[in-house]
Design a protein around this nucleic acid. Structure first.
Lengths: 335, 335
DNA sequence: ATAGTAAATGTAAGCGCTTACACATCATGC
DNA sequence: GCATGATGTGTAAGCGCTTACATTTACTAT
């Protein structure tokens, strides 16, 4: 069933059918009704490929994320997909993994499919070396690229992010002033936001301890899902003689591992041992006691991201960078 | 940059360029190289819409799921997306929510975009009334439809699922025989697999207690994320005088809530109180003590689902229904 | 050398839609 | 009654690709 079939059955030209389909004003009510009736009766659906060929768009957006099963990213993908759908866009999802090599290839795939815009969900997509961000610049030369929780000084790349530095800074000060001074920063990413979080922690510690000595930090290399490995990582530190009574983690999973660690060490939480997570994901409530965590307003971020993206596609001027502040959600793992 | 530009620069016809692009054998090596060089030099990418128009496919699969931020579904989406990508297919994601009304509309959207197949990830897509499954039958009349964890007797609808009944049956027997006899079944879905799980529990209880009396069950109506509401639901039961020392839950989130409940009641787990979850998701390890949970081999299911789908698209005969058995992963919440 | 065949390449007709432009129709004002 | 302009409709030219079929070229066997 094509537009030709419909035009024939309705006794009009294909142009008229097309006009009806696209809500053009230049169609008389009588004709419109006639066409609509036929379409209804025979159940015609326009061919998206032909449409795409003519209009050069299929109203589809590309979403890239490292791993859509990570709770935080899953939530982000969910919000983004919902909001896009509400505006009549479909979402082509592309999970790239964390390895840098695959990212450019994945992006090319999306470009090939002629998406209208690309959303990079997660700060792991921007790298230190400018050359490694070339694939983003290349894409941005063709279509708008949106960064969630990252920022990049490239034309046509827009970003929406939360102020990770300040959130971490305040959180650290808060834990420190609650009386726990030997705090370990436990993190697993050197991404854009990862760096800012770390910097926030270090700045706060430097100020609070009034010392130039290095604050305690530990990078975790293992799987993002393996709680046991995370706990082991902390135990190793302990075995090496590092003593800490607070853990500030770069995400809730690491924080949860810290809580497990503290339990195994028989620390009382939060009196003797404090833990603070990041993302305020579902995991925070799953923990026992429940996790104090930094909420970075993911839904708000996603909302603005989509608004910006759609605005760009409509040719409007949009802010190149939008920053929101996070909020500490206090629960049982801190005083 | 179109195929015409390339053909001109290479001094061949567009047919030849197309042949090179599609790996046709009927091209001399010399010509092939010449064309490839030009393509390389000028950076040509085929227009997917035009390609789609001609071939009537864009190698894209539609994935529908209620909520991609649910840990189990997120994982499913992740596996499916990965495996599709490995076979050269992209994934159009469509989160429908749990309301039945939106499902048909979402499916139409995917159909409009001319996906090659549709994957319904989650058993909440099949309903009791045949009329409510019409939207699936309609889609299946056009393209293959795959059901994950559900089954439906409709032509061209294929399913891959785990044997929820048996898993639940065995799990229930196991808990019962460990000495905990007042078991509550705590569930939140009447979906296809939901029903089978419940049936497995009831069958086991009937057999074990050798009684026709109703086993204890409680349906949870609230949000899928709200642990507190789940705990409250259990407390209400308790306040009403219902005594139970075991909870078998239809998913890990509910199980986790049961653990929280048991802690609040100061039961010792697993000696005085046992909990068993379903899905063996990441939540199981986040729990304290860690959750005994039924693993339904999600990755295997997804693998078979994709294999079946791709087989169908190649015109091969494929099993209409593939069932795997689950496995109880024993951890700290049961003896 | 030459007919006969196989391999390489070109030509052109779609695929189903949008839309600029041309044309027809109709109401208006004089 | 007729020029004027709005409004509705049709015609046809793309959009960029694939592919059946036609044509040319390169080999083989005689």
């Amino acid at each position: 069933m094509t537009i030709y079939d419909i035009s024939e059955k309705a006794g009009v030209s294909i142009a008229t059918v097309s006009r009806v389909l696209n809500g053009s004003q230049n169609v008389s009510d009588k004709t419109r009704k006639k066409v609509l009736d036929i379409i209804d009766r025979y159940g015609y659906t326009p061919n998206a490929f032909a449409r795409g060929l003519g209009l050069n768009t299929m109203r589809t957006m590309g979403i890239m994320c490292a791993d859509s099963s990570d709770p935080y990213l899953a939530k982000a993908v969910y919000y983004i997909e919902q909001k896009l759908r509400a505006s009549g866009y479909d979402s082509l999802l592309c999970c790239t993994g964390y390895a840098p090599e695959t990212k450019a290839a994945s992006m090319n795939l999306l470009l090939t499919k002629k998406v209208d815009g690309i959303i990079l969900a997660g700060s792991n997509f921007v790298h230190d070396k400018e050359s490694e961000n070339k694939y983003i610049a290349d894409a941005a030369a063709q279509i708008p690229v949106m960064l969630l929780n990252a920022d990049l000084d490239i034309p046509n790349v827009y970003s929406v992010l939360s102020d990770a530095f300040s959130s971490m800074y305040e959180a650290t000060v808060s834990v420190f002033q609650s009386g726990i001074k030997d705090i370990l920063y436990f993190y697993n990413s050197n991404s854009y936001s990862g760096k800012h979080k770390l910097a926030g922690f270090l700045a706060a510690m430097k100020e609070q301890t009034a010392s130039e000595a290095d604050a305690m930090t530990q990078f975790y290399h293992g799987s993002h899902e393996d709680v046991h490995a995370m706990v082991d990582c902390l135990k190793n530190l302990r075995d090496k003689g590092l003593v800490f009574h607070g853990v500030i983690a770069s995400d809730d999973m690491l924080a949860l591992a810290a809580v497990k660690y503290a339990r195994e060490m028989n620390y009382r939480i939060p009196e003797e041992f404090s833990v603070l997570g990041y993302n305020n994901s579902m995991l925070a409530l799953c923990c026992e006691p429940e996790l104090t965590s930094i909420d970075n307003k993911l839904e708000t971020l996603c909302q603005h991201l989509i608004t910006t993206l759609l605005g760009l596609l409509e040719g409007r001027e949009m802010p190149k960078k939008t920053v929101f502040s996070g909020e500490i959600i206090r629960r049982g793992t801190t005083r």
